[in-house]
Design a protein around this nucleic acid. Structure first.
Lengths: 210, 210
DNA sequence: GCGATAAGTAACCACCGAGTTACTTGCGGG
DNA sequence: CCCGCAAGTAACTCGGTGGTTACTTATCGC
């Protein structure tokens, strides 16, 4: 009799609603901080369905990570920078990294949580490990082309550079709140974000000069 | 009758033992993941003492953060780089940041946890906020001197640079385990750590070239 | 040496939250 | 059109955990 919003049966829809709700909850409160009751409520689903589709809270967290990684790897794959000017392409790539954090605020918390748990969900996920790392390949070929044209220095390890590109943006977003409290300066404002975006591009391109 | 190792009474010792145990536990399992029973056991103290000295689990976590921040700010204060060659001093400073993470593996997890909790413990701690940020002042004067001598570019914001210096090291340590799993390359090995240390100095000094 | 204070102990509890049980009901294939 | 299966529901359970109660006893100023 109760006119629940979830009347018709739909495996994929319910699964996705739980996944979306879990993403929000895990990002906001962490793996132990999140509540399965709250995830179910937010998804408009019955708690039992979490166990039906994902076996356990950890299974659900793993599925959230799998979707998260699939999303960013997909976006990275869609970047078509291979044919462009190396300097131009590299600054697009650094800006892409930065913007991904802006547009996906849940991303950092989920990664931090997974690292706190010693990467056990990622390690036991064949799905995550099957995703290749297109950005590293892109960086690698940009470095080669840029060095050949005399636009970049020649001694750069693409994996190290990848970590640095991610790092200069990541730390800013990850630690904004504590840094704001300590500096007494609101780093979450749009102006600060714009300033930071310019800075991270400057740092990477400045470093890459021959 | 029980010959407990904690026989004689000693306010400061017990307090410190709890704090040390809590630092380990919170860093390993997060704020909600850590167990007060386990902290007490590890400290060789009675659980009641946590509440005696720190009022609550959150109070204990705040005290851990206060000690953590006091430690790093103290070490930063002890750096005496003001009179040295700017390039030399800057690379020491970048290396200091890197080495701090090596020597204090608990540091990153605690910061991540605090950021997940929206910096609420830091914000309500007058003690943390009373610590000034000596590194930013050091960076500021190095930038001025380096620009004057023609060793550094002239347009660098010291706060942005501080965040970048921290960031290139932080992300590596923070995400080592997930990155290792995804790259299929063990980033926690001593060789990789040495390589990374050289790289982060290169990135910052490369960027700072005029 | 005595008594107030505070360090320390053990046993306890109320609640909360992950996971289950036992059930109902919509739906697609024959 | 009906039946087997899977989607969905409500009401549990039970172990763990932060915090407390009620107590003992070492220590130190006088």
């Amino acid at each position: 009799m109760t006119a629940s919003p979830q009347r018709t049966r739909n495996r994929e829809r319910t699964r996705q609603q739980i996944l979306d709700a879990a993403t929000v909850e895990f990002a906001a409160k962490g793996l132990e901080g999140a509540r399965t009751d709250e995830i179910a409520r937010r998804a408009g689903a019955n708690k039992r369905m979490i166990y039906h589709y994902f076996t356990s809270k950890d299974g659900l967290f793993q599925a959230v990570l799998e979707e998260t990684y699939a999303n960013i790897r997909g976006a990275e794959n869609a970047l078509r920078l291979a044919s462009r000017d190396p300097v131009e392409a590299m600054s697009q790539l650094v800006a892409f990294s930065f913007d991904w954090f802006v547009d996906h605020p849940e991303f950092i918390s989920l990664l931090n949580e997974e690292n706190l748990h010693r990467a056990e969900h990622v390690r036991s996920s064949t799905q995550v490990q099957a995703l290749n790392m297109p950005l590293v390949d892109t960086i690698s070929s940009l470095l080669t082309r840029g060095a050949a044209s005399g636009q970049f220095r020649a001694d750069v390890d693409p994996v190290e550079l990848y970590i640095s590109i991610a790092g200069v943006s990541y730390f800013y977003f990850s630690n904004r709140l504590t840094l704001s409290a300590i500096f007494g300066r609101d780093l979450t404002s749009p102006e600060e974000t714009t300033r930071r975006r310019e800075h991270v591009v400057d740092v990477i391109l400045g470093y890459l000069r021959p």
